[in-house]
Amino acid sequence: KCNTATCATQRLANFLVHSSNNFGAILSSTNVGSNTY
Score class of each variant (00 low, 15 high):
residue 12 L to M: 14
residue 18 H to R: 03
residue 16 L to W: 15
residue 4 T to M: 07
residue 1 K to W: 08
residue 12 L to A: 14
residue 15 F to N: 08
residue 22 N to H: 03
residue 9 T to F: 05
residue 14 N to D: 03
residue 27 L to S: 11
residue 24 G to K: 01
residue 37 Y to V: 09
residue 13 A to E: 05
residue 29 S to D: 01
residue 32 V to S: 07
residue 23 F to L: 03
residue 15 F to Q: 05
residue 17 V to K: 00
residue 25 A to T: 15
residue 27 L to Y: 15
residue 4 T to V: 10
residue 36 T to L: 14
residue 29 S to P: 05
residue 35 N to I: 10
residue 1 K to V: 10
residue 11 R to H: 08
residue 37 Y to P: 06
residue 15 F to P: 02
residue 25 A to C: 15
residue 11 R to G: 14
residue 21 N to L: 02
residue 21 N to S: 03
residue 13 A to I: 03
residue 34 S to N: 09
residue 25 A to S: 11
residue 25 A to W: 10
residue 16 L to A: 12
residue 34 S to Q: 10
residue 6 T to A: 11
residue 36 T to K: 09
residue 10 Q to F: 12
residue 1 K to R: 13
residue 1 K to F: 11
residue 17 V to R: 02
residue 26 I to W: 03
residue 29 S to T: 14
residue 32 V to E: 04
residue 26 I to M: 01
residue 37 Y to G: 08
residue 25 A to L: 13
residue 13 A to G: 12
residue 33 G to L: 06
residue 20 S to Y: 11
residue 8 A to Y: 06
residue 27 L to E: 04
residue 24 G to R: 01
residue 8 A to C: 15
residue 36 T to Q: 14
residue 36 T to R: 12
residue 18 H to G: 07
residue 9 T to W: 01
residue 35 N to L: 09
residue 11 R to F: 14
residue 37 Y to D: 07
residue 4 T to P: 15
residue 4 T to K: 06
residue 1 K to I: 07
residue 23 F to T: 05
residue 5 A to S: 10
residue 1 K to G: 13
residue 1 K to C: 15
residue 23 F to H: 05
residue 31 N to T: 09
residue 33 G to E: 10
residue 26 I to F: 00
residue 28 S to W: 03
residue 2 C to L: 03
residue 14 N to L: 10
residue 6 T to L: 08
residue 20 S to K: 03
residue 31 N to Q: 08
residue 12 L to C: 08
residue 31 N to S: 06
residue 26 I to G: 02
residue 29 S to G: 04
residue 34 S to M: 06
residue 36 T to I: 08
residue 7 C to E: 00
residue 32 V to D: 03
residue 16 L to K: 06
residue 21 N to Y: 11
residue 3 N to A: 08
residue 34 S to H: 10
residue 12 L to T: 15
residue 32 V to N: 08
residue 19 S to T: 14
residue 3 N to K: 03
residue 16 L to C: 15
residue 31 N to C: 04
residue 15 F to D: 07
residue 12 L to W: 15
residue 28 S to G: 06
residue 29 S to M: 09
residue 7 C to H: 05
residue 34 S to C: 08
residue 14 N to P: 15
residue 25 A to Q: 14
residue 29 S to E: 10
residue 4 T to N: 10
residue 26 I to T: 02
residue 12 L to H: 13
residue 2 C to Y: 03
residue 20 S to I: 06
residue 11 R to P: 15
residue 12 L to Q: 14
residue 32 V to G: 05
residue 26 I to Q: 05
residue 14 N to G: 05
residue 10 Q to M: 13
residue 9 T to M: 01
residue 30 T to K: 04
residue 10 Q to P: 15
residue 6 T to Q: 11
residue 9 T to A: 07
residue 24 G to E: 00
residue 16 L to Q: 13
residue 32 V to A: 02
residue 36 T to M: 12
residue 7 C to I: 03
residue 20 S to L: 04
residue 31 N to A: 04
residue 27 L to W: 09
residue 5 A to L: 03
residue 18 H to F: 15
residue 4 T to R: 06
residue 21 N to I: 08
residue 22 N to P: 02
residue 30 T to Y: 11
residue 1 K to P: 12
residue 20 S to D: 07
residue 30 T to R: 03
residue 22 N to G: 00
residue 26 I to L: 01
residue 20 S to G: 13
residue 6 T to P: 09
residue 33 G to K: 10
residue 27 L to V: 15
residue 19 S to E: 07
residue 14 N to Q: 11
residue 28 S to F: 09
residue 5 A to G: 11
residue 22 N to F: 01
residue 32 V to L: 07
residue 35 N to D: 07
residue 6 T to S: 11
residue 11 R to Q: 11
residue 19 S to L: 03
residue 22 N to C: 01
residue 10 Q to S: 12
residue 29 S to R: 04
residue 14 N to A: 05
residue 24 G to Y: 01
residue 11 R to K: 11
residue 10 Q to Y: 13
residue 3 N to W: 02
residue 9 T to V: 06
residue 3 N to I: 02
residue 22 N to Y: 02
residue 22 N to S: 03
residue 13 A to L: 04
residue 28 S to C: 14
residue 28 S to L: 06
residue 31 N to E: 02
